[in-house]
Design a protein around this nucleic acid. Sequence first.
DNA 1: TGATCGCATATTGTTGACAATCTACAGTTC
DNA 2: GAACTGTAGATTGTCAACAATATGCGATCA
Lengths: 230, 230
Amino acid sequence: MAAPEGMFVLEGRPTAQLIADQLRELIVQGAFRPGQQVNESALASQLSTSRGPLREALQRLCQEGILVSKRNRGVFVLELSTEDVKEIYAVREAVELAAASTLLDSEPDQVSDTCRELKGIIRGMAKQVAASDWQAIARLDMQFHTAFVSGTGNTRLIRIYETLAAESRMCILSLEVAYPRIDALVQEHQMILDLLEARDRSGLQDAIKRHMHKAVEDLTSKPEVTGITA
Amino acid sequence: MAAPEGMFVLEGRPTAQLIADQLRELIVQGAFRPGQQVNESALASQLSTSRGPLREALQRLCQEGILVSKRNRGVFVLELSTEDVKEIYAVREAVELAAASTLLDSEPDQVSDTCRELKGIIRGMAKQVAASDWQAIARLDMQFHTAFVSGTGNTRLIRIYETLAAESRMCILSLEVAYPRIDALVQEHQMILDLLEARDRSGLQDAIKRHMHKAVEDLTSKPEVTGITA
DNA sequence: TGATCGCATATTGTTGACAATCTACAGTTC
DNA sequence: GAACTGTAGATTGTCAACAATATGCGATCA
């Protein structure tokens, strides 16, 4: 029997995953400083749960790389180095190039669904740029790229990209307050969307590479910023 | 004070990670059937540990996708569909293409170190092909590709690839006993190595694409095989 | 005065017991 | 005879207490 409309199994996902998702969101929003130790007991009571489920959630985030675990010391929020930034964006480039290739090989219908979604996100982005809401801009930025990759339907690619998106938001957070080249932001995403709609394979690939390359430049040009170390 | 040569901190890594590594190896070696439930209590006592650390390890493997967790039901070994096989190899292609690109952009010394390692693995592969040891061949096959990606030094790319390697071994395991085209196996890897040494970018990219494409064909051409569903 | 040793404290790592939930089977009713 | 309901068993989910380990401070000694 299929569940009636609007009705779904209560808490179908494992608890640890729910806690992990919550924690990830807290971390990328900057609720914890990079390098800060995460106290198990304190967090457990804050989230009104026990240490057991919380530890399981922390394990997941360690595996993702957002937290690092030191035996008998505890877990700490990842400190991003410029090397990390380069790594993250190199992998993002690889994933997005693969996503672009897959999308252009797939049904036109599937692509246009994705394009519709991307359009909406760009609209929202322009709105938030006007309002100078950096947190919202960062969220929409990553939402755009996540939607792009989701368009492939490749669950493994999507899962990998979710981690990368979280790490990217941590990078952007470390930049603090502002995106440089704020006017170019909407423009660059619009170009990626246009090239996808035009099914211009090599143009799209180049645009993605440029987008990533510029992001690395922006993020590493200010090594003195809080949270970014050597 | 740096630790003296050959001496290192005892059990420096978290317990859950050690257990997870052990379990992953057991699973890819086929100690558990696809779809089989993993009993926590039983496994915990088998590994002479408690349910707590074991559950943390299981969480990690769930995140990797090797196990799937159903709330209040337990965790089960992943059942691979032909769709999964396509996904896995699409992501592997993306990662290896990125690795190839990175390697060809890096120092010649770094590349030759990698080539040396790859050569040794191919030698071992030829030996095991002669001996028809399929388990060893599968291990060396993935060891080759893992070494290739490791050559980039990108820790995130490497971590992602470790999961893909485990899933690939599960695919190969599902094929049971034999690789088809066993003679072509050593040859294909040798070609990848040669193109890397020759720094032939487009040739290497094509070779990787062909290698992955053929693997998917081999793995999905026999949908009636044990463990492969739908 | 400087370094080293030992202790106190806080935090993590582990364990076993208890509670909640699901599956399967037997009994009952139409 | 088929479908539904209730119960029994097993398994996972959660929790709180206990053990082990690392860190930081203060005392001791060269």
